[in-house]
Write a protein that binds this DNA or RNA. Structure first.
Length: 554
RNA sequence: UGGGGUAUCGCCAAGCGGUAAGGCAAUGGACUCUGACUCCAUCACUCGAAGGUUCGAAUCCUUCUACCCUAGCCA
């Protein structure tokens, strides 16, 4: 029984936000009979990115918090931009993040119902077929400060509208010839209410309904119907739709929906040094500035996944950034903090030398090799120890040596003794240089009594460094990253030509066991993942996930 | 120039009339078989500005300022 209650096991309940406040009030007033139902409604026209993750987390965790449900719904009302490749990737990404939708739906599932609703609006005299061209409609719309003018077709009879709309549906007209418009108010200060187009003609094959339809509903008309049909209570979207809310409400009111869902807007995510526009990301892919949507430098879910980010880290991030209506720019350092936080207690550590400098232990027998045992970090103690070979010739990191040390430098320098991780105390005795004066080798001595685990405590050293055994070192390829985008002098985001650097490195022999997709921490360097596409059998390619923070400066 | 929004620490963000939570970043220190991790400390007499109401305001009122969205048969 002895299970003493652990002092508040953190269990940090997600911070509440203004949306929760709205829902709390609805619950109090029994607005939806106590129901909470949300949805994540992406258009399948690209891959999901970290900004979508914010919306996904918000919708799913909000539903979960109130014991409600959340749907995944593809908003596929524009056949010219959408593709099945995208619906597959979106499904996979949402699932990877760890969320379970109640229903998987498509806006196109409702095309029939939407058509019927449009007929209903026509019958109520609330919609009409307009023959104006796109350009003419634009002319009639007026400007931000001037009211619009009514279309000459605005007052067609119900019967005529019904016939015309049916003809539209039956393919009697080419694209652009006619549209169906809501009859609202051409003088409204809100442009969205100036008789918005709600149906257009498009003789294009739809990824799902194929050639069943040649008229397609517009977002503003379709979205409220989709929400209402699914019993959505809180339709969460981003700020730019705020001006569309009156139209959202108008559609449902004219359709006489009882308990209509309510639209709530929040600020989309912006990240420093990151471009999130789908248009731009697609261009990066198309112009081959990156290797694909899942390039480890991309802010897409697929890219972050391949880069080594975990769903836990991304969800933690979304939790920490909060939700509000204020436009903001989140520092990417927070995302990096989240992945370090998650990985530090999950992954093992390895010794890898990125820029090797040869070390010869002059008092160590020429042909001897021994095995030393290396412990993991405290955070992953349960993973135990691993065995690594040690012998006379080793490689250490070039910057773990300084011929003339700066103050507070306590790694290798002439005459200084340091601990080689898991092995011995080593003293630098002599520096070998080539004719150009470059350091090519360090001649050192070791103290046999100081073997790791021997209990030796005769003296202490300030520094501990990593190393690899020259004889058994495993050559690997490292890819290290910096931001894909950087700011130029004008303060605009441009492509960083140095966003990826690839080079050869040496790791301890145990790296041979690492499989594609596995992560580890390289001492002093950061967290890495064996690339899921480039790591094959003996070939090891490691992507840098994030570096380690360091408080040491020269 | 119309309409709709938003302004709280370098970056996010709580707060909803009772006298400024938290996280990231930063800084100083302790610890350390890696300078990581951990720990401890510091970090908004002030809430875009100016007035007003009140015993008391970031929270209410007035005026002003800045920034974002908005004139697709995109979503």
């Amino acid at each position: 029984m002895a299970d003493m209650e652990k002092p508040q096991n953190v269990a940090e309940q997600a911070a509440t936000n203004f949306i929760h406040n709205i829902i709390d009030k609805d619950l109090e007033n029994q607005t939806y009979g106590g129901r909470v139902y949300t949805r994540f409604p992406p258009e399948p026209n690209g891959y999901l990115h970290i900004g979508h993750a914010k919306s996904i987390c918000l919708n799913f965790t909000t539903a979960e918090k109130y014991g409600g449900k959340c749907n995944l719904r593809f908003d596929d009302t524009n056949p010219v931009k959408e593709d099945t490749e995208y619906v597959d990737s979106i499904e996979a990404d949402v699932r990877w993040l760890g969320f379970q939708w109640d229903k998987l739906l498509f806006a196109s599932d409702y095309f029939g119902k939407m058509y019927d609703c449009a007929v209903l609006l026509i019958q109520k005299g609330k919609a009409y077929v307009c023959d104006l061209s796109a350009e003419e409609i634009k002319q009639h719309r007026g400007t931000l400060t001037e009211p619009g003018k009514e279309s000459p077709h605005r007052n067609r009879t119900v019967e005529e509208n019904l016939t015309l709309f049916e003809n539209m549906k039956n393919g009697a007209y080419p694209d652009g010839e006619k549209v169906l418009r809501a009859k609202i108010d051409m003088t409204s200060p809100n442009m969205n209410m100036r008789d918005p187009v709600i149906y257009r003609i498009a003789h294009t094959e739809h990824h799902k309904t194929k050639d069943q339809w040649c008229v397609y509903p517009m977002y503003d008309y379709a979205h409220p119907i989709e929400d209402a049909m699914e019993g959505i209570t809180h339709s969460i979207c981003t700020l730019e739709f705020e001006d569309h809310r009156p139209l959202y409400d108008w559609v449902l009111r004219e359709l006489e929906w009882v308990e209509p869902p309510q639209q709530i807007e929040f600020a989309r995510l912006n990240l420093t040094n990151t471009v999130m526009s789908k248009r731009y990301l697609k261009a990066l892919v198309d112009e081959q500035n990156v290797t694909g949507w899942d390039d480890p430098r991309m802010p897409t879910i697929a890219g972050l996944r391949r880069r080594g980010y975990t769903p836990e880290a991304i969800r933690d991030f979304c939790d920490r950034i909060g939700v509000s209506k204020a436009n903001s720019m989140v520092d990417i350092a927070l995302l990096e903090h989240c992945i370090r936080e998650d990985l530090k207690e999950k992954v093992e550590t390895r010794m890898v030398v990125l820029d090797p400098l040869k070390v010869v232990i002059t008092n160590y027998p020429e042909d001897q090799t021994e095995t030393v045992e290396i412990e993991n970090n405290k955070e992953v103690e349960e993973k135990g120890t691993r065995k690594v070979s040690f012998s006379r010739e080793l490689y250490v990191e070039r910057d773990d040596f300084m011929e003339v040390p700066v103050k507070k430098y306590f790694r290798l320098f002439p005459g200084n003794e340091v601990r080689f991780k898991g092995a011995y105390f080593i003293t630098c005795q002599e520096v070998i240089k080539d004719e150009d004066g470059n350091v090519t080798e360090l001649r050192c001595t070791y103290d046999p009594e100081t073997r790791s685990g021997s209990g030796f405590d005769g003296r202490k050293v300030k520094g501990t460094i990593h190393w690899v055994d020259a004889k058994t070192a495993k050559p690997i390829t490292i890819r290290s990253y910096s931001h894909l985008m950087v700011e130029n002098e004008e303060g605009e985001n441009i492509l960083n030509p140095d966003s990826m650097r690839e080079f050869e490195a040496y790791g301890e022999a145990t790296l041979a066991e690492i499989k594609a997709g596995e992560r580890c921490q390289f001492f002093r360097h950061g967290y890495y993942i064996a690339d899921e596409k480039l790591t094959t059998g003996d070939e090891k390619v490691f992507n840098q996930i994030v570096d380690l923070k360091s408080s040491w400066k020269k």
